[in-house]
C-alpha cells in the first residue's frame, strides 16, 4: 500500500521530470543547449516509484539518461537545468552537462556517460553500507543495453556473493539507440539473468507506478535483511528519440504513438489516483501546472546564469585540503 502522501509525491516528481524534459528538448531545439541530451520522458514511473522509498542517506547511480533519476533523488530543477546549459550555477559548475548530474548530499553518486559505468559504483556504495552496518541501500539504474556490459555481470555476481544491500533496476525501454533488445540480448527477459547469479529477478510493467513500487519494496526488505541483491526489470518504452535530434528511422512510428497515447505512465497513474478517489483531477492538474511553471523558471534561471570562469578550469582535479 502506498500512502496517499507518497502517491502525491510520486505524481509530483513524475510531472517535474516530464516538464523538465520537455523544456530541455525545447531549449535544445532553440539551440540554447548543446551536447548529448538523452530524455527520460515516458519512463518516469520507475525513477519516481523507486526513489519515493529512499532517503537522502540511500545511494543511487544513474545513467546517460539520468535527469529523471536525479530529480527523483532530490535534484533541484534550476541547478539541473543550469548544468545542462554548462553554467556556473549548475550541479557540476558547468563541467559536465546533461550526462553527469550528481548531488552527493542527496545520495546521488551521479549520472554516468559510460554505459554500465555506474553499476559497480552502486555496488561499492552498498559494500560501504554493509561494512558500516548503517542500514542504507544502494540502487543502480541502468538500461537494457547496459546489461550486456561486463560491469553488469561482474557486479551482480559480486553483490550476490557478498550479499550486498543493492537493488539493480534495469529500465528496459526496448532499445539501445537503434538496436532492439531482441537483437542484442540473449534472454527473453533481462531479469532471467538473475538466475545465473543466484538472486531473485523479476520483470514488471515499468509504466505502472504500483508494480514498480511493490517490486522495489520487496527488494528493499530483502536488501535490508542481509539477504543480498535483487534484479528488477522494468519494461517501459522510450517514446522520444535516443537523444534530442534522433531521426528515429529504425522504428515504427505506430509503436511510438501506441506507447505515448495509451501507456503514458503519468496518465495511467493519474487515472488510478482519480478512480480510487485519492485526488480529484483538478487537484492533480494543479500539480501539473506547478511542475510546468517550475521547469520554465528553471530554464530562466539557467539562461540568466553566468558561464564558469575559464580561469578556474583546473579546480577540482585533485582534492586539496
Amino acid at each position: 500500500m502506498i500512502s496517499k502522501e507518497r502517491k502525491f509525491w510520486i505524481y509530483e516528481i513524475m510531472n517535474k521530470i516530464r516538464y523538465f524534459e520537455l523544456k530541455a528538448l525545447r531549449l535544445f531545439e532553440e539551440n540554447k543547449l548543446r551536447g548529448s541530451v538523452h530524455l527520460y520522458a515516458g519512463e518516469e514511473a520507475v525513477a519516481a516509484a523507486v526513489c519515493s522509498q529512499l532517503t537522502d542517506d540511500d545511494y543511487i547511480t544513474s545513467t546517460h539518461r539520468g535527469h529523471g533519476h536525479c530529480i527523483a533523488k532530490g535534484a533541484e530543477l534550476d541547478k539541473a537545468m543550469a548544468e545542462l546549459m554548462g553554467k556556473e550555477t549548475g550541479y557540476c559548475k558547468g563541467r559536465s552537462g546533461s550526462m553527469h548530474i550528481a548531488d552527493f548530499t542527496k545520495g546521488n553518486l551521479g549520472a554516468n556517460a559510460i554505459v554500465g559505468g555506474g553499476i559497480p559504483i552502486a555496488t561499492g556504495a552498498a559494500l560501504a553500507a554493509k561494512l558500516q552496518k548503517n542500514d542504507k541501500v544502494a540502487v543502480s539504474f541502468f538500461g537494457d543495453g547496459a546489461s550486456n556490459e561486463g560491469t553488469f555481470h561482474e557486479s551482480l555476481n559480486l553483490a550476490a556473493v557478498w550479499k550486498l544491500p543493492i537493488i539493480f533496476v534495469c529500465e528496459n525501454n526496448g532499445f539501445g539507440i537503434s538496436v532492439p533488445v531482441a537483437q542484442s540480448t540473449s534472454v527473453e527477459n533481462i531479469s532471467d539473468r538473475a538466475v545465473g547469479y543466484g538472486i531473485p529477478g523479476v520483470t514488471i510493467d515499468g509504466n505502472d507506478v504500483f508494480a514498480v513500487y511493490e517490486a522495489f519494496e520487496t527488494a528493499v526488505k530483502r536488501a535490508k535483511s542481509g539477504d543480498g541483491p535483487t534484479l528488477i526489470e522494468c519494461k517501459t518504452y522510450r517514446t522520444l528519440g535516443h537523444w534530442t535530434g534522433d531521426p528515429q528511422t529504425y522504428r515504427d512510428k505506430k509503436d511510438v504513438e501506441m506507447w505515448r497515447d495509451t501507456k503514458d505512465p503519468i496518465q495511467l497513474f493519474k487515472k488510478r489516483l482519480v478512480d480510487a478517489g485519492d485526488f480529484t483531477a483538478a487537484e492533480l492538474d494543479t500539480v501539473e501546472e506547478a511542475a510546468k511553471a517550475e521547469a520554465d523558471a528553471a530554464a530562466e534561471f539557467a539562461i540568466n546564469s553566468p558561464n564558469p570562469d575559464p580561469a578556474d578550469v583546473m579546480d577540482d582535479v585533485f582534492y586539496e585540503a
Binding site: 548543446r34 551536447g35 554548462g86 553554467k87 557540476c92 558547468g94 563541467r95 559536465s96 552537462g97 553527469h100 558561464n307 564558469p308 575559464p310 578550469v313 583546473m314 582535479v317
Partner: peptide, 16 residues
Amino acid sequence: AKACPLPFNIELENAV
C-alpha cells in the same frame, strides 16, 4: 591539453 579532464562548457573546453 592542460592536466584536467575535458569539461562540457565550451569556453572551458577551449581553455583546456
